[in-house]
Design a protein around this nucleic acid. Structure first.
Lengths: 129, 129
DNA sequence: ACCGTTGTACGATGTTTGTCGAATGAAAGA
DNA sequence: TCTTTCATTCGACAAACATCGTACAACGGT
């Protein structure tokens, strides 16, 4: 039996029709979560531990859940890793231009300039190297 | 001495350069505040008591403060009234397309359809009539 | 001078949120 | 099999938040 069926709580992903704009705005109004989103824009898929954020693993898990349950990200399991992607197409189909307007706005602001998010492959990334 | 100079706390309005996207997203992620913003889009200027929201006056004051201090609205005093406007131009100059993308997204969602915001003049509006 | 209108400030309250540490579960490798 | 790695859930905690009632301040009219 694959791991995805054995998890105590299955990964819940809302359908695009269920997206709530207020939930999405709330999800993206946190600096850590905004960093996650920006990182995913320049990396197709990443494992949880490879994000350039400075919080405890359990905190990161919490932020992923907020993003996932609002529809911003999708997570898929493979072995011990959990791969995360941005649901850019789903978001854009439901709310055209929203994601782009928000991230662009953030990156043109002062806060966005302070911490440029590095692009590049993340599938074999080791944060301790 | 006019009232605006006698208030214990003066009305603080951040400059467009000081706008913080995360603050704006947080400000607009609340249903009551979203209603305020949507109402202001279809009414040039409104007094505080004329908004179609169902909260206590003190709660409304709180929401106005959140919106004002994040740069979303501007408030000006005149007699006993406090006139509120949307800072659409300032917002659009600083973060092009952001306000429109957010409000449009909200109004195309289910939550937006449930409570259409009425347009019309508000300068002489009497909620008890 | 007095009152009604308008909206705020303050204090209290219950909820949500962000944070962490510890324990847990599952898979991969030794 | 044992250990390491990856990421989660749980419980706890302080801070922030939405809400309200009450008291208050300022203006405008009577």
């Amino acid at each position: 039996m694959p791991r995805s069926q054995r998890r105590r709580t299955a990964l819940t992903h809302p359908e695009p029709e269920e997206f709530d704009v207020l939930d999405i705005l709330h999800a993206m109004s946190d600096p850590t979560r905004m960093t996650i989103v920006r990182t995913l824009r320049s990396a197709p898929e990443r494992a949880c531990g490879t994000f350039p954020v400075d919080v405890a693993p359990s905190t990161l898990s919490h932020h992923f859940r907020v993003l996932r349950e609002s529809g911003v990200i999708r997570q898929r399991e493979e072995g011990t890793r959990r791969w995360t992607t941005l649901r850019a197409e789903d978001l854009d189909r439901r709310f055209p231009g929203l994601l782009d307007a928000i991230v662009t706005a953030y990156e043109t602001s002062a806060a966005g300039r302070e911490q440029p998010v590095a692009a590049g492959r993340a599938d074999r990334h080791d944060p301790r190297s």
